[in-house]
């Protein structure tokens, strides 16, 4: 096993690989969890484009939908938010830092803020009325549900009346926080229970780890 340990260590000194100890210190993950995530990340990265430790949008979509070409507004937004450097690919450090927000131990404030940025489609610093309508319409077009434009308008109106406390036609971060406080289920999908037992799902870290948590 000495050989596999050595080759694993050499293999990990690759472009884009960040020290798990540093990543663990900056996120909700333990060092072993970061190492387990590395195994997952390597699998995702090599699914289509073999260019090392870079996760492309097609590979991200393939993992989410079992299809690399499916267009999805929210998968696009999540990818763009994970791509912190905005260079069109997700690097390992970006993957860990972003997924950390979905960890059961991450703060509610981080989750609320991520959801706000997700829904702020045009990154204006506000969730605007037309963005709410665009998201509802996009989801309806993906589903079998059919609603008339009047019904969609009334759903969006009702939501804006409740969320847009200042009445300026858009939801700011403060208003969003208050709205989520009234409807905590809105950030339910900001927590992935899977992340609690990532080391059980990806146990190969046991052979490769250099650190015991």
């Amino acid at each position: 096993n000495c050989f596999s340990l050595m080759s694993s260590r050499v293999g990990r000194r690759r472009l884009g690989y960040e020290d798990p100890t540093i990543l663990a210190s900056e996120t909700a993950f333990t060092v072993n969890e970061v190492e387990a995530l590395y195994d997952l990340f390597k699998k995702l990265c090599s699914s289509i484009i073999k260019d090392g430790l870079l996760l492309h949008k097609e590979e991200f979509q393939l993992a989410l939908f079992q299809s690399s070409s499916k267009q999805n507004l929210f998968a696009d937004r999540v990818f763009d938010l994970f791509d912190i450097k905005r260079n069109g690919v997700i690097e390992f450090g970006e993957f860990v830092r972003s997924l950390s927000i979905f960890h059961p131990n991450a703060s509610e404030a981080e989750k609320i803020s991520f959801a706000f940025r997700l829904y702020d489609l045009r990154q204006t610093g506000y969730i605007e009325r037309d963005e709410v309508k665009e998201m509802v319409s996009a989801l309806l077009s993906e589903s079998d549900l059919e609603l008339s434009d009047d019904v969609i308008e009334s759903i969006v109106d009702k939501t804006m009346v409740e969320a847009d406390l200042k009445g300026d036609g858009k939801i700011d971060q403060e208003e969003w926080k208050e709205f989520v406080a009234k409807h905590p289920s809105l950030i339910k999908n900001m927590t992935l229970p899977y992340l609690k037992d990532i080391t059980i799902q990806f146990p190969s870290f046991v052979l490769n780890t250099e650190v015991q948590d």
Partner: peptide
């Protein structure tokens, strides 16, 4: 069924369900 547009959005968006990342292994 949904109290507001965001409940609809967060419940219906499969693109937001990252658990698939872990099931794809």
């Amino acid at each position: 069924k949904f109290l507001n547009a965001f409940e609809f959005i967060s419940s219906m968006s499969s693109g937001f369900d990252l658990s698939n990342l872990f099931e794809s292994k």
